[in-house]
Computed example of a mutant assay.
Amino acid sequence: MILHGWHGWLLTFTGVAQLTVICLPLAALAVWLLARLRIAGGTERPWAWRRSIAEVGIVYGTLPTVWLTMLPGSHAGTAPGRVSLIPFHDLMTTSPPQLIGNLLLLAALGAFAPVRFRAFATLPRAIALAAGVSVLIELAQYVFRLDRVSSIDDVLVNTVGAGLAALASNRWWRTRTCRRHIEIRIRDDNTTRT
């Protein structure tokens, strides 16, 4: 399918999906450049690559999916905002593709934020970050009257997806956290001995 004009690329599901695929080589180049700059600056090779992959992964993996949630419906601006605050009510009518999309929406954030930011290098903090971002997305859909339902179930499913992704990347951020604690203990031991 050939898309014409910025509207076709930025305001349709197909356009955003195609842009995401087209930008994959640019994302890979960004990872490589960031890692090379860090290695040249004295960062150890494994940490330089992990940090670079995490930074680009957060942006590349989260921005397109969040952008898709902000695409306006056919009655955007005219339809009143709709809210569903009863947990698990909307899950009964959610289609499998939509459920999978909601699980994947913040998966990159859940997987890479603990790797990149020490403050989120615990499962509860990674889950709290994802829940907060998901609430902001639902609020934005309501405030901007995008002809979408702002649902507590979306927040729950987005958060579960991010939590599962954080568990999947656990080895990357647990290694970093454990290593940092060991370095601090060694430094503290050396300080007390002198």
Rank of each mutant, 00 (worst) to 15 (best):
L139K: 02
T122P: 00
L104I: 14
P25W: 10
P46F: 06
A121K: 05
T191Y: 13
F112E: 02
T93W: 07
E183Q: 08
V115D: 02
R45S: 04
L129N: 05
T93N: 13
G73W: 05
R148C: 01
L85I: 06
D153N: 09
V31G: 12
T62F: 10
L99Y: 11
A40G: 13
G5D: 09
E44K: 14
L164S: 10
C178F: 13
A128P: 06
S151E: 05
V56N: 01
R148K: 11
A28F: 09
D154M: 06
R174W: 10
G42A: 15
A28L: 14
L146S: 03
L105Y: 07
T43D: 09
L24C: 06
W9K: 01
H89G: 00
A17M: 15
L136F: 06
Q141I: 12
E55Y: 07
L85P: 01
D188G: 02
A54S: 03
Y142C: 07
L139T: 10
I53T: 15
A28N: 01
V83I: 13
N102A: 04
G110Q: 06
E44S: 14
S84N: 00
R179P: 00
R187H: 10
R82S: 08
A17W: 15
L11M: 11
A126I: 05
R36D: 14
L139Q: 04
L24N: 06
S134P: 03
V149D: 06
R145S: 06
Q141D: 11
P114A: 00
G163W: 05
V115A: 10
L37N: 14
M70H: 00
R118E: 11
T191K: 12
N158I: 12
L167C: 02
P80A: 04
L123W: 12
F117S: 00
R51D: 15
I58G: 01
G15R: 00
G57A: 15
I186L: 11
L34A: 10
M92G: 04
E183P: 02
L33A: 12
T177L: 15
A165H: 04
R174C: 07
G163V: 08
P80V: 03
R174Y: 11
L33D: 13
R116S: 00
G8H: 03
G8W: 07
W172P: 09
I2R: 11
I152N: 01
V160A: 15
P64I: 03
A113Y: 01
A28E: 03
A54P: 01
A111Y: 10
G77R: 05
R82D: 05
A140C: 09
I127D: 02
W6D: 00
A113Q: 01
H89W: 02
L99N: 03
D153F: 04
D189H: 13
W172K: 14
H4A: 12
G5I: 06
L37H: 14
G8F: 04
L19W: 03
E55F: 14
W6K: 03
R193P: 05
R125N: 13
W172C: 12
R116T: 01
A111M: 13
Q18E: 09
V56G: 00
M92D: 04
R38N: 12
N190Q: 14
D189I: 12
D188K: 12
L105P: 03
T43A: 02
I127Y: 03
D147S: 02
V16F: 05
L156T: 12
L129F: 11
R176E: 15
G81N: 01
R118K: 11
G73P: 08
L139D: 02
A28S: 07
I53Y: 05
S150L: 07
A27W: 08
R125V: 08
R116D: 00
D188F: 08
